[in-house]
Amino acid sequence: MSDALFDQLGGEAAVNAAVDIFYRKVLADDRISRFFDGVDMEKQAAKQKAFLTMAFGGPHNYTGKDMRDGHASLVKDGLNDSHFDAVVENLGATLKELGVADDLIGQVAAVAETTRNDVLGK
């Protein structure tokens, strides 16, 4: 079912279309931009694609442990539910800007939701 979602959204092309819009929103969002301060933009582009592919239900190799380890230092710096919600909100706004239907946006939010505990180290 996940793969179907990814295809419905337009697959890799959709990820490419979304990555600039999404990342610009994240960096401009005072609630969360500080978490991205030290990160290298060029490497970040690849990571944003990985993030979006995952959230769109596409193929990826990350395990829950990877998500836990990958965000552990951010959790130490105070990453919490409100930041997670802000990211999901930006994701929704990005998809809306791209003209994606509401029910698909809801499905993307649901996929992101499945990673909450790992991302927040709960």
């Binding site: 990555v19 600039d20 990342y23 610009r24 960096l27 401009a28 290298d40 933009m41 060029e42 582009a45």
Partner: peptide, 20 residues
Amino acid sequence: VKATQRKAFLAGASMKDIHS
């Protein structure tokens, strides 16, 4: 370079069009 990458991006340049 790193600070300007981000500023150029926020000023509207696409990530793939920023070479550094």
